[in-house]
Structure formats: structure tokens, C-alpha cells
Amino acid sequence: MTDATPIRVLIADDQALIRVGFRLVLEAEDDLVVVGEAGDGQEAADLAVRLHPDVVLMDVRMPVLDGIAATALIGRLAPDTRVLVLTTFDLDEYAFGALEAGASGFLLKDAQRAELTSAIRAVRRGDAPLSPRITRVLLDRLASQPPAQPALPDPTGELTEREREVFLAMGRGYTNSEISQQLFLSESTVKTHVGRVLAKVGARDRIHAVILAHRLRLLDDDEPMPPVR
């Protein structure tokens, strides 16, 4: 995608008025275009396959197919499309389920206009639009889960020593700025390493890199997490 190419967005929500509101907000932005609307999860998955949106705004509680199942289906059928989950409560179990199903982040439905548009752009870049508090809760949930059975194959063998350090820092929830300070690198260098790490381990974005690092049990439980801000 070039800077001149607008981000293609599909809106999935069972309430028509909410879809209209989101459309009005997004279409006021020069770099965002709404390519379709869906009233249930199955329709969202069908349109994702047909329309190839860059980002789907996905309500988690919808008829026919809920947002979690729809997110997983989109991940299988339209792997280049990223999903940004919309939820009413920031610690909603449905939202965490959607992240584990393949969503790239979640956002409150009452988010301000700038938060919504920034989150869409972040998801398209492969960044994770989650607050530090939500990231910490996600990390705690992952750390408490039992090891995967059978053990997952470890895709980190191709990482350089520096890339592995960046991957483990990402797994602990550190931002690019925090990784920069921790490893004494410029933020631009960290950004380059992050892109290479995601490609090598097959993670779609930072959220899935975090999930992968924990499921592979690569992190020392005694390592301090970044502070909640």
C-alpha cells in the first residue's frame, strides 16, 4: 500500500444506526474508504472474501455468526484482511476471545473519532491498538494458560540474536520506544527489526507475536512487565 492508496474498511455491526455513524466518521477522512457494510458475522466474512478490505470493524455480539467466529473465519478465508474488534466493555471476554481468534486489536464503541481512525491506521500498519492496561491483562491471561498440547513448533530459529531480543521484548508487551531504550537502539532500527521478526515468525501483527511468544513458553516469568500507564 502506498501513502496515496486509501485504507479499505468494512463495517460489521447488527445495528444500522451504528454502521451509519461509523461510515460518516470514516468517509470524512481522506485516507479511509468504506467498501461495504455487514449486519451479521457471516455476511462480514462473505464480504471480506469478496471485497478484500484492509480492515474490518467487527462488533463481537452479532446474529448468525458472532464476531469471534467471524474473525476466525476471515483469518482463514481472507488472511490479508485485519480485524479491529468493537466492544462495549474494555475487559469483555468476547473481545479477548476475538484476539485469540485472530483479531489485531479491539476498541470501545464509544471511542473518540481520532481514536477510531488512529486505531484503523495502526491495525493496517500491523501495530496493536491496545492500551497498556489491556495489554497487561492480556499478558497475564496468556501467562496463566497451560502449555499448548501438543507443543507448538518454534518458528524463531531463523531470527538473529538481535531479532530474538526484539521478539522477546515484544512478547513482554514493550512498545518500540521502550525496546529502543532497553536495547540502546534508535526507534527506526527497532521498527525495522519488528517488521523482520513478524515476517520470520509468521505473526500478522504485534498482538499475535505476543500470543506466540507466550504459547511457545519463551519468556521468563520473573522478567518484569512494562509498567501500566
Rank of each mutant, 00 (worst) to 15 (best):
219 L>S: 12
228 V>M: 04
123 V>Q: 07
15 Q>W: 00
14 D>T: 08
114 A>S: 15
15 Q>R: 04
150 P>Q: 15
7 I>M: 01
61 R>P: 05
34 V>L: 01
213 A>C: 01
36 G>Q: 10
20 V>K: 05
35 V>A: 02
217 R>Q: 11
60 V>L: 08
15 Q>E: 08
45 A>F: 01
40 D>P: 00
169 A>E: 05
159 L>V: 01
100 E>S: 14
37 E>R: 00
133 R>P: 00
45 A>M: 07
35 V>R: 04
116 L>M: 10
81 T>I: 09
134 I>H: 09
19 R>K: 02
64 V>K: 13
109 K>L: 07
116 L>S: 00
193 H>L: 03
189 T>P: 02
132 P>S: 12
227 P>S: 10
106 F>C: 13
61 R>D: 15
75 G>P: 10
75 G>I: 03
57 L>Y: 06
192 T>Y: 04
5 T>K: 08
50 R>C: 09
218 L>P: 02
132 P>L: 14
10 L>W: 07
9 V>I: 07
5 T>N: 03
50 R>E: 12
185 L>Y: 08
186 S>T: 09
164 R>K: 05
216 L>R: 07
118 S>I: 11
182 Q>D: 13
180 S>G: 09
32 L>D: 00
105 G>Y: 06
27 E>F: 01
192 T>F: 03
86 L>W: 12
171 G>L: 05
14 D>I: 01
79 P>D: 14
57 L>P: 02
76 R>Y: 10
83 V>F: 14
4 A>R: 11
64 V>T: 09
16 A>W: 00
136 R>K: 13
101 A>T: 15
175 T>Q: 06
56 V>C: 06
132 P>Q: 13
19 R>Y: 00
130 L>M: 13
139 L>E: 09
216 L>N: 09
108 L>A: 13
10 L>A: 05
126 G>F: 09
149 Q>G: 08
1 M>W: 06
133 R>V: 09
125 R>I: 12
219 L>D: 11
108 L>M: 14
141 R>K: 12
139 L>T: 08
157 G>E: 15
91 L>R: 13
61 R>L: 13
206 R>D: 06
139 L>N: 02
209 A>E: 01
166 V>F: 02
138 L>R: 15
139 L>H: 06
161 E>D: 12
68 I>A: 04
218 L>D: 05
203 A>C: 09
214 H>Q: 07
120 I>T: 10
80 D>E: 15
197 V>G: 02
224 P>W: 13
93 E>R: 10
